[in-house]
Design a protein around this nucleic acid. Structure first.
Lengths: 115, 115
DNA sequence: CAGAATCCAACGTGATACTG
DNA sequence: CAGTATCACGTTGGATTCTG
């Protein structure tokens, strides 16, 4: 388990959740993995303008927190597939909520800037 | 509107939501304000081990993002009340989801460390 | 293909002390 | 009471280049 998560546990359940899913791209990664396993580069392209370096870090965090599973196939060329663990799948509702709220917020932004 | 939020809007609605609520203590602040307005020190005590310096920053962010309203009463001693805007109240469901998921996760942690 | 290595700038977070 | 000022520091996110 990662340290930030453990520290958050001292304070509030809400902080625990934020510690796990609060990093940038993390929930977007989960969102795209809800459709099924993806390989590293496919995920990279799906998530958005994220560099491999950063994506790797986030994936390692998610793996350490038990949200994501990393499966390495010893082939040439190398293949690595990322998928959600059951715990990761339990985030589906949260992703949906974030997506909906984020959309509404973006609409509000657009409306504000056009006025 | 804050820059991080605007940048997130280019990528994914999920990132927008995370940009607004992803900071530490932010959602915990919202959680406690759901019960009604609170003064600065009351909020400080309710949220947890957060320094005034940090809490102030988070509150300013939330204010800039339209989630929180800051009302200053020109009295002596000074009184400042923080409350949720309608947009802030629309986060109620999200807070609930985070709280529930965080609790379940904390339980999982406890179970893992006792085994 | 899936990253690792290296480097860096910017932030986020925090402790401590002070003030209108 | 509700902050602000100052300082410090670790982490994050990112660009770039390289490799088994």
């Amino acid at each position: 388990m990662r340290e930030p998560v453990r520290r958050a546990a001292e304070a509030c359940p809400v902080e625990v959740a934020i510690a796990v899913v609060g990093g940038s791209w993390k929930m977007t990664v989960v969102k795209h993995l809800l459709g099924g396993p993806l390989r590293f580069n496919a995920l990279n392209r799906a998530v958005g303008p994220v560099t491999p370096r950063v994506l790797t870090r986030q994936l390692r965090d998610l793996e350490a927190d038990g949200v994501v599973h990393r499966e390495v196939y010893p082939e040439v060329p190398p293949r690595v597939e990322y998928s959600l663990t059951p715990l990761g799948e339990s985030l589906a509702g949260l992703v949906e909520s974030l997506n909906t709220w984020g959309e509404a917020y973006a609409d509000r932004l657009a409306a504000a800037s056009s006025s």
